[in-house]
Simulated scan of single mutants.
Amino acid sequence: MKQLLIIVLLLATLFSCKIDKNNEDTVYASRTISTVDVDVILQDSTLSIRAIDFNDEYLFYGSSNHIGKRALNKELKFDLNELKLSAGKRHFKNILNYEDKPLAFRAIQNVNGNLLAVSVGSPARLYKLNRKSNNPVLVYEENHPKAFYDSMEFWNDDEGIAIGDPTDDCMSVIITRDGGNTWTKLSCDDLPKGKEGEAAFAASDSNIAIVGDHTWVATGGKASRVMYSPDKGKTWDVYDTPIVQGLETTGMYSIDFYDENNGFAIGGDYTKAADSSANKIRTQDGGKTWGLVAQNQSPGYRSCVQYVPNSNAEALVAVGFKGVDYSSDAGESWTHLSDEGFYTIRFLNDSVAYAAGNKRISKLTFRE
């Protein structure tokens, strides 16, 4: 009887575990999200926020007129003058000007507590804000009149990539190998040749997906393809997609990969937000081939899509200015959870995410 009880307990433990999404030995518990709670944690009527990241201490963001970070936990403070104890969340704002105008930031990355942020438009200016400093340092500048950077991601604490619109006959790609202190722009000789009207959208800082050393970059516009590197940006291929394209406003706006094989991209045409005819695509072979899913089914245009952690590449959440949507079957069908509009979203775990948009950043809690 004792041996039987031990076996039962072991089996129960095995079939109820949930660990990292990339562990192939994980047994996943099926769940269906039916509601989302939205709690505003930062509100400012002057902001448009399209880039967020976080660690255990801070939520980092890039906005239409500054970069900032807000403490996630309250800090106790004692005022010696008034002998008063108070608790609040620290909030830091850095307004960075060029020719007396504040720069706008749509691509950021938290790297071990340091904030990297690149501005949109020309000149492109990339800053690094060290975790123990309040003074951002300019680490890269590009003065080409066509310079416009859209997204940034890091493979590890030292190596990272940012991508932008073409200044020549290929997408702009800059890479760092020293934690963001210096950046090098790749030659078009080392990148796939671009197509006419092919660029990228600075809509949600999610044009780049990374799994291990593998990297996928979503382009958009008159041509919308996936650039792929298996070796942290050293070599590149490019793959066609069936997503809607042909106009400057069409194509992929966001891409995410769950593992080396399973990926999803979403977009459409933001000027025709209800059109869902060919705005969602999926791959199961690492991005080499893509197929349309949920054709003529909501949601229409969305600016960001993310896999839900610990979901075996089955659960996805997409956000846009028309609301929040959820899929439990790898994008085959979708449930509209909220009309609350957001531009971008990042998951903390399989139930909680942070989302940002027009005038605010919110905490989203997903419930069954």
Rank of each mutant, 00 (worst) to 15 (best):
H66C: 06
H66F: 11
H66K: 08
I67G: 01
I67N: 01
I67R: 04
G68H: 08
G68P: 01
G68D: 07
R70S: 06
R70P: 00
R70T: 07
R70K: 14
A71Q: 00
A71M: 00
N73P: 00
N73A: 14
K74I: 07
E75F: 02
E75I: 10
L76I: 04
L76R: 13
L76M: 08
K77D: 05
K77F: 04
K77M: 01
F78Y: 15
F78D: 06
D79K: 07
D79A: 11
D79M: 05
L80D: 12
L80R: 13
N81G: 11
N81M: 02
E82T: 13
K84E: 14
K84H: 13
K84M: 09
L85A: 10
L85Y: 08
L85F: 06
L85C: 02
S86M: 02
S86H: 05
S86C: 01
S86T: 14
S86I: 02
A87R: 14
G88R: 10
R90A: 11
R90Y: 04
R90T: 11
H91F: 15
H91T: 15
H91N: 15
H91C: 09
F92S: 08
K93Q: 09
K93H: 04
N94T: 05
I95K: 14
I95G: 04
I95L: 06
L96T: 03
L96W: 08
L96E: 06
N97Q: 07
E99S: 13
D100Y: 10
D100P: 01
D100W: 06
K101D: 12
P102A: 12
L103P: 03
F105V: 09
R106L: 02
R106Y: 11
R106F: 08
R106G: 01
A107F: 07
I108F: 07
Q109F: 02
Q109P: 01
Q109C: 08
Q109T: 10
N110W: 12
N110C: 11
N110F: 09
